[in-house]
């Protein structure tokens, strides 16, 4: 494993508030993998909700704050493909900090890609005897290319699967529609509520009909949406972020 220097942990605002366990698991996992991790406490929302709603221009302040918060780190790692994609592609240009911005966009990684591509870890030793269904969040999947897309003619790969599949006892479940959107979509979840719910129900049905015990993924936003629907409908399926599974399996 290459010596990895200082990592700034970027925890999406809603994960900080709702899913501290996911953030803790991310931190502990990275530490177990030998990383020096710091959580800069001044961090805030990355601005994605506003930008996706059509107000990217109003997030310059947010973007500037982000750059300043993380400027001293060699890497920025977040347990969210979506927020990482936003910082990489949809942060508005910050006047005077263009070069810093470019550096930041190159040093920020989603958790699983950081493990496979930067730490160069092919497999994680551990045990996790469960039937696991993987929800590929679209921003991770097609935005960051964390896995091959079913639409493209390319050699199949999946960074999360690479890490999960080595765990002893873990059964990876093949879904009928392996990378269809769950219908969260940020603002979409509210502005197009009916569609959002239907898409979520359909995704859940795919997992449940394949006897998935634990639904996992790299983005808690999608999982929050799916969990919310499953909980309302009393569906019997558990939800975990991939960081939680990996962290649990290692120990």
């Amino acid at each position: 494993m290459p010596q990895v220097n200082k990592i700034g942990l970027f925890i999406p605002c809603y994960v900080d508030q709702f899913y501290p366990n996911v953030a803790i698991a991310t931190l502990e996992l990275l530490e177990k993998l030998g990383c020096e991790v710091v959580y800069p406490s001044g961090q805030t929302c990355c601005g994605q909700p506003m930008a996706n709603a059509g107000y990217e221009r109003d997030t310059v302040g947010t973007a500037k704050h982000f750059l300043k918060t993380f400027k001293d780190f060699d890497y920025i790692v977040a347990p969210s493909g979506s927020c990482v994609l936003h910082v990489k592609e949809h942060s508005p240009s910050v006047p005077g900090l263009e070069s810093e911005q470019q550096v930041t966009q190159h040093k920020i990684y989603e958790l699983t890609e950081f493990i496979t591509d930067v730490l160069k870890i092919d497999s994680i030793q551990g045990s996790y005897p469960h039937k696991v269904g993987y929800h590929a969040s679209c921003h991770g999947q097609r935005g960051l290319r964390l896995a091959s897309a079913s639409e493209l003619h390319e050699t199949p790969f999946n960074k999360a699967r690479q890490l999960l599949q080595q765990l002893e006892g873990l059964e990876w479940v093949e879904l009928t529609r392996k990378d269809e959107c769950c219908g969260f979509g940020g603002t979409f979840a509210v502005t197009e509520e009916a569609l959002s719910i239907q898409m979520g129900k359909d995704r859940l049905e795919d997992h449940i009909s394949h006897d998935v015990e634990i639904l996992t993924g790299g983005d808690m936003s999608c999982i929050m949406h799916l969990q919310g629907i499953a909980s309302r409908n009393k569906q019997n399926i558990q939800f975990k972020h991939i960081a939680e599974i990996l962290n649990e399996a290692i120990s």
Binding site: D16, L27, Y39, R232
Partner: peptide
Amino acid sequence: GLNTWGKQRDLPELPKETFKDWY
């Protein structure tokens, strides 16, 4: 937004503390 989110979806359980506090 709240009513719309919660119409057909539950809100997540609220944890005792945020990650920031835990950290």
